[in-house]
Design a protein around this nucleic acid. Sequence first.
DNA 1: CCTACCGATCGGTAGG
DNA 2: CCTACCGATCGGTAGG
Lengths: 215, 215
Amino acid sequence: MNETKPTVLYHRADATKTRSDILRVAADIASAEGLEGISIGRLASEMNMSKTGIFAHFGSKEQLQLATIETAKQIFVEQVVQSALQKPRGVPRLMTMLENWLRYVDRIVFRGGCFFAAASAEFDSRPGVVRDQIAELTRSWLVALQEEIAVAVLNKELTRSIEPAQLAFELHAYVQEANWAFKLFNDESAFARARRAIRNRLASASLKRPPKKGQ
Amino acid sequence: MNETKPTVLYHRADATKTRSDILRVAADIASAEGLEGISIGRLASEMNMSKTGIFAHFGSKEQLQLATIETAKQIFVEQVVQSALQKPRGVPRLMTMLENWLRYVDRIVFRGGCFFAAASAEFDSRPGVVRDQIAELTRSWLVALQEEIAVAVLNKELTRSIEPAQLAFELHAYVQEANWAFKLFNDESAFARARRAIRNRLASASLKRPPKKGQ
DNA sequence: CCTACCGATCGGTAGG
DNA sequence: CCTACCGATCGGTAGG
């Protein structure tokens, strides 16, 4: 079946490529069907490889899950974080982070929506290193939002009565809700709702002008 | 092992009781480990019954999942909805619904947090009747919030510029975020954050007084 | 990277 | 409600 049949040794470059191919497939499956859903047999058939061919790259299912999370993190950074780092700190960077996140969900970078939203819901009641890793990465995203808010306060873009952790909680809630509604109801308008919520919340937290009531 | 060994027929009342006992265990497991996590074998060992003893009550795993959702719905109505129906319509009832929900998560009615938050994240990418049922029940909770907001606007408790679906999106986002943060970070303070967010949002949407900026 | 295999567990059935 | 069983699939191992 295979065109090349390596006899004993494998080129390290090929193995690295194979590994990262496996992990991209794994991350996509995991976002939709869970990190427990990425069975080694399933990956094998999807990659046209033997089970042990997959297994050899990771050594255990838990290691496979951890490697999948690492891959998802790289994709997340690439899609959501990187371009925001070009923006001035404070509100502009904060807005870009949130907007990038919404578009990353809308563009279906992962079939199951935000990888970390799915993974954290799946593992929040399963103690272990997988859960710990998911929590740590998610925490650092929340902290990044929070730090940008703190900068915005220092810049006087936002009133100094703002508590960064509180505002980060609220803004993060909006985007998570958009992911949730989009996935569960197939409802594109969830993104517009999240954008509106963000805009209003930042307006009411800004010094510039008194917030318009209601909407 | 069992004290009573029915030979051929079973009292219908006993069977009904057994069924509901199975389903309460199933709902608790499902909230933490997913609706796919409630295997028939696992339920059998947890209930000290045979697999077919469990199976006979439902006929298929999918029917078991649907019955588990129905049980979770009853528990949700009992814990979150019922006492709110005693309150006057509009803002008082809305606040009670949200507060009951936060306490239902904090009190760990289900080991995995809100049953429907867990189930919707698990099934949002798995088409079928299970997903449809989860979506429908969740939708009706969102609509209930929305209707209470609409009443509050009619009552002039909230400004008429409020769009109920938008405000429901935001308030629902806060409580979901609290469940998420509580489960993932074991962080009790998430409830206080949600309460603060709700209070501020309703204040800025109310006619009574100009919202305080920031907090 | 492969074939061949392991014990455990899955949902489900036959028959009582 | 039970025992006894089915084929499929799980994570993982032996040996190459």
